[in-house]
Design a protein around this nucleic acid. Structure first.
Lengths: 260, 260
DNA sequence: CGCGCTTTTGAATTATTTCAATCGGCGTGG
DNA sequence: CCACGCCGATTGAAATAATTCAAAAGCGCG
């Protein structure tokens, strides 16, 4: 079932090669596997042309034939599925370096949309698999990537089941955001590219609950919003603690699907 | 961090070959990939000895080195993680034919425990990867399996975010249970091998909420419990409808990680 | 500087949890 | 064979959390 909202035309191709590498802030530890998988699979995309996708535009649609894989070169992408009438679940956000569609076999299971203006590269599924089959380094890298993706999905699942809902979920979300390849405005500030509705749909909450929770965290001087898209992290230790009692945190919850 | 509760000794080996194939009820459509992946990967396990694990005993522990892959031959296994103090998330249930540990790279991310008495087979991760590398049919099968696992995890994620929570989640759970390779007591009855606490921890609800929801479904004559471990499905259509408005349901939510 | 849109805040309603008590099956021992 | 106690499941009532609907506020863009 292919359904295209009229407001979301297909990705426009462009040739804007003036990359600004302002990835100033990236505190994620990189797993050995992540690095390995990333380096080799990234090489498949270098020869393709970067496409510019305006904020809000779709890159691919749930239900479409998954003929391409995409790599986010710059910007933020949200993946969502429609469930029931009028509701949406954002299953993941993807940042610079992340691959979209690696775990697909036939159809896209999610719609991908640009949260901010993005640069993306694409290769066909066919040539991707040919390359993976040809090379003997790419196979393990691909498998490693799939395993990371599965681990991330499991992690997200766990997060979604937290009881002390809003607080835990939101803190967990903020902490994860910190560990992504997400350009930071300036020291101590965390950029939050997505709007409140996106966050709500990702966390399974309403926009009002998200807003109220942020307000409460601000009152406790843990994180303080500065404008709509930035958070000042005042008390990181407390934030991490609130995000799910920390013990197994730094290890497990930072698995990412990042190719850089 | 390896922590073994004293009540959960390691899996005991056994040789009980008297399989009773009473898989009378299995209405899951099988995807082409699923069948393919299953047939070839299953072959890796046939030479290994079946081990019998008593109900409640652990098969492997979160945090342990993932030196083996397991296949459930008979029975039901639950996978869980500990989050915060005293709470548990059951990330998945595995049934006959399912593989445990395929998406792991180093450590087990979950603890696996037998819900019912199980027969399981194991092979070492090392030889699994050697076999996959040697054969040219196994690689794609393995990748296909990983993709299915990712799809299932995504599906579960979506389910966890449903708003009209308890009813939708529980109905969705019941419907999924129907499509698993789960021996049925007799026509029209659905066996529910896990207890209420397991269901609650899987759905992110309390045991009381699960119980109340079942009671309400029974009052509406949709499913009626018969004893603790069986449900009579009275109105399947309504059940499916309640489980999340059905439109994309039969296709997407039945992806499984099944090797038969 | 205005307007439109997202976000925040408020109040009432609904859903879910929590705590506590009861039920019901099942196995053991008298 | 029956009584007892245990354990999982159910039910009830009060407390809490989250949603809904509605209105006000604030940011950002022209």
């Amino acid at each position: 079932m292919t359904q295209r909202p009229s407001t979301a035309p297909t990705a426009t191709r462009g040739h804007d090669d003036a990359m600004q590498n302002n990835h100033a802030f990236d505190n994620a530890e990189k797993t050995l596997e992540g690095l390995h998988a990333g380096q080799s699979l990234s090489s498949l995309f270098v020869s393709s042309t970067a496409e510019v996708v305006a904020a809000g535009k779709a890159i691919c649609w749930e239900g479409d034939k998954a003929n391409h894989l995409f790599q986010v070169e710059e910007g933020v992408v949200r993946l969502h599925r429609i469930i029931g009438e009028g509701r949406r679940v954002i299953t993941a956000f993807h940042f610079a370096g992340d691959l979209i569609g690696a775990s697909l076999q036939n159809d896209f299971l999610v719609t991908a949309e640009a949260v901010t203006e993005c640069k993306i590269r694409r290769i066909s599924r066919k040539s991707f698999h040919e390359e993976v089959a040809r090379s003997n380094a790419l196979g393990p890298a691909y498998i490693s990537l799939l395993c990371q993706e599965a681990a991330a999905a499991h992690e997200q699942m766990g997060a979604a089941c937290r009881r002390r809902m809003r607080e835990e979920r939101l803190c967990s979300f903020i902490v994860k955001l910190r560990s992504r390849r997400n350009p930071q405005p300036r020291q101590g500030l965390l950029r939050v590219p997505m709007n409140r509705q996106d966050i709500a749909d990702h966390l399974g909450l309403t926009i009002e609950t998200v807003s109220r929770t942020i307000t409460k965290l601000a009152a406790r001087n843990i994180v303080v919003p500065e404008g709509r898209h930035d958070l000042r992290i005042v008390n990181l230790a407390r934030l991490v603690q609130l995000s799910g009692d920390a013990d197994d945190f730094s290890e497990n919850s930072c698995h990412r699907v990042n190719l850089h």
